[in-house]
């Protein structure tokens, strides 16, 4: 994995937040202003109780929501300028959100179609992306013919085909069984190492956060805010051995403790 370069933040929150109006008697809901830098090559995981603003943070990072305080910068610029410069941000939503009326291949080709890439070039990229997630054999099927785990992988392939530099993932594996999830986690690590992706990842799973991240951000609720940052630095590669190591266990222990403190 390329070393994170903190001097050149790829995504930066400068006191950016977004609160939602509720009844005045309620606790403040939404995301309080936060500051956060994500450097190229980082794999940052957001970990926190339900309602602590993880999805809100991700939507701000995807420019799908305007912050009501501060601002968000991509490559030091506004979203549109950064986009025009050819940098790419893409999103893997919590459920696969595929087009049921199109084939798997056409779904994966969507971001390329949207930027009007010539068909031949696009198809080459689609094949490549489908191979990365091991789904080249189902390219012609409709999403409805796939299992939930396969659909999720189609969604990931669609994100990869876009050739992103920044990948935003909102609990992508939450609906999957433990076994599929572990397998996909391992695939994610390989993918990120190979493609040099920068990833902002939301999860409820401590083990998943410990396995994937270079940095875990533990969040607290009411209002949503950053409670602690925890760097993860395994001695060796992230593989099955890492999952079984004492180092992994101690990372999980630390994260569990932080999460409990955040919930207090």
């Amino acid at each position: 994995m390329t070393r994170p370069d903190p001097a050149r933040p790829l995504l930066a929150f400068h006191g950016a937040g977004r609160m939602f109006a509720g009844r005045s008697s309620d606790a403040p809901r939404g995301l309080a202003p936060i500051s956060l830098n994500i450097a190229a090559g980082d794999f940052v995981t957001l970990l926190g109780p339900s309602g602590c603003g993880k999805s809100t943070l991700l939507k701000l990072a995807a420019n799908l929501l305007e912050p009501d305080s501060g601002h968000v910068r991509w490559w030091g610029r506004g979203f549109v300028d950064a986009g025009l410069a050819g940098h790419r941000v893409t999103l893997v939503p919590q459920d696969a959100t595929l087009m049921p009326w199109r084939s798997v291949a056409a779904n994966v080709r969507l971001p390329l179609d949207l930027e009007r890439l010539p068909r031949a070039q696009a198809d080459a990229k689609v094949d490549q992306a489908l191979r990365k997630v091991g789904l080249e054999s189902v390219a012609a099927l409709r999403p409805s013919a796939l299992s939930g785990g396969m659909r999720m992988r189609v969604s990931i392939a669609r994100a990869l085909a876009a050739g992103p530099e920044l990948l935003l993932m909102d609990e992508p594996f939450a609906a999957l069984d433990e076994l599929t999830r572990t397998a996909l986690d391992t695939e994610m690590v390989h993918l990120c190492e190979r493609s040099g992706l920068t990833t902002l990842f939301v999860t409820h799973s401590i083990a998943e956060a410990a396995f994937l991240s270079t940095r875990v951000i533990v969040m607290a609720a009411d209002p949503g805010r950053i409670f602690a940052e925890y760097p993860v630095d395994p001695a060796g590669p992230r593989d099955e051995d890492f999952r079984l190591s004492d180092r992994f266990a101690s990372i999980c222990r630390d994260l569990t403790r932080l999460l409990a403190e955040a919930a207090r």
Binding site: A62, N63, L64, G83, V89, T90, L91, P93, D95, T97, M99, L110, P111, L114, E115, A162
Partner: peptide, 12 residues
């Protein structure tokens, strides 16, 4: 599907 609409928006 609002998720798809968001995806289209994100990809301009």
């Amino acid at each position: 599907d609002p998720g798809l609409a968001d995806y289209f928006r994100l990809h301009r």
